[in-house]
Amino acid sequence: LNLKQAKEEAIKELVDAGIAEKYIKLIANAKTVEGVWTLKDEILTFTV
């Protein structure tokens, strides 16, 4: 999975969960695949 694909998957998951745009922007700015997954997990843990 490359960075672009990771971001697309994570953003789709966050949108489906009804997460606010400000958190989705954090994913869009992530620099690594690991960073994308870590941010996604943290956002889902603390906002859902």
Results as ranks from 00 to 15, higher is better:
residue 19 I to H: 03
residue 15 V to G: 05
residue 1 L to H: 11
residue 33 V to K: 03
residue 10 A to L: 05
residue 24 I to H: 07
residue 27 I to Y: 00
residue 45 T to F: 12
residue 20 A to L: 08
residue 25 K to G: 07
residue 4 K to N: 09
residue 24 I to C: 06
residue 34 E to A: 06
residue 16 D to M: 14
residue 14 L to Y: 00
residue 19 I to T: 05
residue 32 T to Q: 02
residue 31 K to C: 11
residue 26 L to F: 05
residue 46 F to V: 10
residue 35 G to D: 15
residue 25 K to C: 12
residue 6 A to R: 02
residue 40 K to Q: 05
residue 21 E to W: 14
residue 1 L to G: 09
residue 23 Y to D: 03
residue 29 N to A: 12
residue 25 K to D: 08
residue 34 E to G: 05
residue 27 I to K: 00
residue 18 G to V: 02
residue 2 N to Y: 10
residue 39 L to D: 01
residue 14 L to K: 00
residue 11 I to E: 04
residue 37 W to H: 12
residue 1 L to Y: 09
residue 27 I to G: 00
residue 14 L to F: 03
residue 7 K to Y: 05
residue 30 A to W: 02
residue 20 A to R: 05
residue 17 A to W: 08
residue 17 A to M: 11
residue 42 E to T: 08
residue 28 A to P: 02
residue 33 V to Q: 03
residue 14 L to W: 01
residue 21 E to F: 08
residue 34 E to Y: 06
residue 23 Y to M: 05
residue 29 N to L: 12
residue 46 F to E: 07
residue 31 K to V: 11
residue 8 E to Y: 07
residue 4 K to M: 10
residue 34 E to W: 06
residue 46 F to I: 13
residue 1 L to W: 06
residue 26 L to Y: 05
residue 10 A to T: 04
residue 46 F to H: 15
residue 43 I to G: 02
residue 23 Y to I: 04
residue 20 A to V: 06
residue 4 K to S: 10
residue 48 V to C: 14
residue 6 A to I: 06
residue 21 E to P: 11
residue 26 L to M: 11
residue 18 G to N: 05
residue 5 Q to S: 08
residue 12 K to R: 13
residue 41 D to T: 09
residue 22 K to N: 07
residue 26 L to Q: 06
residue 27 I to T: 00
residue 9 E to V: 14
residue 22 K to F: 10
residue 1 L to Q: 09
residue 7 K to W: 04
residue 25 K to P: 03
residue 12 K to P: 00
residue 41 D to N: 14
residue 47 T to K: 10
residue 41 D to L: 09
residue 13 E to C: 13
residue 35 G to A: 15
residue 5 Q to I: 09
residue 40 K to D: 01
residue 23 Y to E: 02
residue 46 F to C: 15
residue 22 K to S: 08
residue 21 E to K: 08
residue 39 L to T: 06
residue 28 A to L: 14
residue 40 K to Y: 14
residue 29 N to I: 10
residue 32 T to C: 03
residue 40 K to P: 00
residue 35 G to W: 10
residue 16 D to E: 15
residue 4 K to T: 09
residue 45 T to A: 14
residue 18 G to T: 02
residue 29 N to W: 08
residue 43 I to E: 01
residue 38 T to W: 15
residue 46 F to K: 15
residue 18 G to Y: 03
residue 11 I to F: 04
residue 15 V to R: 15
residue 29 N to S: 11
